[in-house]
Design a protein around this nucleic acid. Structure first.
Lengths: 312, 312
DNA sequence: TGAGGGCATAAGCTGGATTTATGAGTGATC
DNA sequence: GATCACTCATAAATCCAGCTTATGCCCTCA
């Protein structure tokens, strides 16, 4: 069927995304076809039969209303549209790989070879990527992840329940060795139509301190750093709103409820898409990201490998 | 079942991703539960029944081997692990939204209210985000997308077959009005273990010019800009390898075959994950991203709205 | 104490996707 | 020039996953 023209009425713009986006297996298949240049080979790699692959690609084309691959007796190549779709598909698959790496670690099997404890921000944004890279070097290393606040992480490492910890904060936790593996800047963010977005000059710290913000609940590392940085300017005002998750905070800010201060790791995408705007502020809002381990016990084996990955 | 402990043997680390990652519908459901605080309400929003939602969440928990939501007679809240998983899930869903926005436009229905032509780089990395934002303002606007190189885009716009075009390049296309909507920097990239990655000083342009690179096939905008920038330094060496897609180029570079020059838009993720390293070079490799329209016909309606989005 | 909201379980059904088996087209090779 | 090796498409039968409907239990609040 080189004619994708019996248009089984592509699904409209309503309803759940899942009805309009092919499933992960189909997207992976498409990537495999792009890479291998043949439906049959792609099928084999995915562990299905050639007709199944053929049918999957076809239903994907029906769903999207566009021909994705050019079949020929010598193999299959992507069409122009197919190349575009494949690149969008790759983003989904990469996000799924992050999910998978994180989820596997979260499963926290007792027989793990490497037990990692990490603060929420690191666990959420950085660790899965490190784990994917680690899998590239030590494919058979089972990793378990325990996420919690910095104090809890330090405690786990001290107790020997984790081989390696990752924390964010101003100071290294007491009683542990460690190394700075990166930095994290806190960004003052507002919705694009907020008055601050029209400022031409950096925000005075005192104004930031005096403004009620949307923040995570007490105890988060972000809030701690903010508190310390603004102590000299009258201290942090009573929050406008206290929410349980970083995501909830972001949503609130995006919908214009007020400003917030969040890790740049958490708002990168929103800033790029201009759903949020960062406001320069004349105070240093920076914290270290640290790997920590028990005093004197320099990491070895998988822990050492992971540590080396984090420092590039 | 507050005990997720009859551990239906979580799937191992082999095989297709789709067997280890819940499908999009389940992930969307999880986000809805997180947002609405109740399985039943989430079910209603997704257009399924409450038992179906309950079952989906349960099988997700079985798949991941972790409890995600705390059920209570008063509703459901995410567990700690659930919050983490939900954030990873959100990344997948956002990638799916990008896919969806792009794919819908690609479908290119004749009855579209807004016909856009765009160069590959813009179509791939920027346009879907703009379309998502546009949907927020003009929900009922059907958009069609035609992707091609800059010359083809200009031609479509001149012929009145597209209401708005987006091109990248050094100069504005002749015979069209336009506005710069952004910039794109070309980055010299190599694998992390390449010799250039250990340089402490910027790469001399002449050395870049003399080195065979991995590039896209002739005719790509990237290559054009590179040619122009290095003309004064002896001109571009014969490529080491010419590949059909940006992605193929990236893979080749990542696996250490050689250096390349790619749009920063294309390598952002790879740089962040340190799969690639950018090499500073003492020459300006920058190009404008332009919106274009027929002379004198300043965009109106949906085209104008889209244009305003791109300039934030 | 009854009503309402919330979740779990059971049973039956439906539909989609898979596999096996085959055919047909193309290009290379002897 | 015929055969082989590879590609993909089609057809038919099967099977399983997930849905809906119909309940029941638990808790909270009036």
């Amino acid at each position: 069927m080189s004619d994708p023209g019996s248009p089984a009425r592509p699904v409209g713009t309503t309803g759940p995304l899942a009805h309009r986006v092919p499933d992960l297996a189909a997207l992976e298949l498409l990537l495999a076809v792009a890479r291998l240049g043949s439906l049959g080979r792609a099928a084999k790699e995915m562990g299905i039969t050639q007709p199944a692959a053929s049918s999957r690609v076809r239903s994907m084309e029906r769903l999207l209303g566009v021909a994705l691959v050019e079949r020929s007796p010598r193999g299959s190549r992507l069409t122009e549209a197919g190349a575009l779709v494949t690149d969008w598909a790759r983003r989904i698959v990469e996000a799924a790989e992050v999910f998978d790496a994180g989820a596997q670690a979260l499963r926290g099997r007792r027989d793990s070879r490497l037990r990692v404890a990490a603060s929420m921000t690191i666990a959420e944004y950085l660790l899965p990527g490190w784990l994917i890279a680690l899998r590239g070097r030590l494919p058979d290393t089972a990793v378990s992840l325990l996420a919690g606040n910095s104090a809890a992480v330090a405690e786990r490492v001290r107790a020997g329940e984790a081989d390696l910890g990752f924390v964010e904060g101003l100071d290294a936790p007491a009683g542990l060795d460690g190394a700075v593996v990166g930095h994290d800047r806190l960004a003052v963010v507002v919705a694009p139509d907020h008055a601050w977005a029209r400022r031409r000059t950096p925000l005075p710290p005192a104004e930031l301190a005096a403004t009620p913000l949307i923040l995570r609940e007490r105890g988060s590392g972000t809030r701690q750093v903010l508190d310390a940085a603004l102590a000299a300017y009258g201290g942090l005002a009573t929050p406008l709103l206290e929410l349980a998750s970083t995501t909830a905070v972001k949503s609130a800010v995006v919908s214009g409820l007020g400003p917030s201060v969040l890790s740049e790791l958490a708002v990168g995408e929103e800033l790029a898409a201009r759903r949020l705007v960062e406001i320069p502020v004349a105070v240093r809002l920076r914290r270290d990201l640290r790997a920590v381990w028990p005093l004197g016990q320099r990491p070895t084996g998988p822990a050492r490998e992971l540590l080396s990955l984090t420092r590039g």
